[in-house]
Amino acid sequence: MRIVVLVKQVPSTDDGLSFAPDLTVIRDAGPCGLNAADWCAVDQSLQVAVRRRDVQITAVTMGPPGAADALRTALVLGADAAVHIRDEALHGSDALATSRVLAAAVRRLGFDLVLCGATSADSGMSAVPAMVAERLGVPALCFADRLLVRERKVEIHRDDGCGDRRVFVAAPPMVISVTERCGEPHYPRYVSRFDARDKPIAVWGLDTLGIDPAEVGLAGSACVVRAATPRSGGRPDALAMGDPTSVAIRLADFLAERQFL
C-alpha cells in the first residue's frame, strides 16, 4: 500500500503571522515547525504501517527551502522517503495552485491513500485536501476525528458538534484529512533520528512535474490578497461582567453565534 502524506511547514502559532510587502506570509523568519494536524497525519500513516507489511510512506511538501525541516520531522517520525517541491515560481500560490502542484506530485508517486491535515495553521483554508482529491478524481474523507484503515475500505468517524456524529466509508484510492482529535501522535524513539539521516529527500521543480510556471505562484493564482491589517488591542469585549442573568444571556448568545447551541 502506497501512502503519500502531505505536510506543511508553518510559522509557530505562538508568534503569530507576519506579512511581506507583497502580502504573502513571511516564512523564513522566526520559529517554524510541522503543522500540528500534519503531525497527526504522519502518525496515522504509521498506525496503518504497524498493521501491514507492505506499506511505503512518502512525505511531500511544497515550500521554500526551510520547509525541508517539515520533511525531516516526518522522516524522523517514521516516513520512508520524502519529496520537496521547491521552485521560486511557486511563491504566492493560492489553494487552487497549491492543489494543482500537490496533485501532480501525488500522481507521479502513485498512491492508494493520500493523508493530509484537516487545516493548516497559517492560512487555515481547509481546502487543499478536497481540491487534491477533486484533481485526482478520487473520493475524500475530510475532517476525520478517528480513522480506521481496513483491507479494502477506510472508515472515518466525525463529530461535527451539536450531537452530530457520523461514520463514513470509502474505498481506496482516496484522500483523507485528519484532525488533531485522531489521537496524540507517538513520539519517535531516539534511534529513529539516526535512521532518518539515511532516508532520501528528493527535490522536484515545476519542470519535474510538467507544470507551466504561469499556472502557479502570484501570477497564476485566482485569489489576491488586497490588504492585511493586524487587529490591535486584543479582545476588547471578551469579558462579560454583571449580574448572573445578563452574563448567562451573553454566554448563550455567544454559543449560539458559534453554532454550539
Binding site: 503569530g16 503571522l17 490578497v225 490588504a227 492585511a228 491589517t229 493586524p230 487587529r231
Partner: peptide, 12 residues
Amino acid sequence: VQGGAWRVESSV
C-alpha cells in the same frame, strides 16, 4: 485569520 488577530481583504 488566526483567531481574529488579522483582518485580510481578498478578492478573486
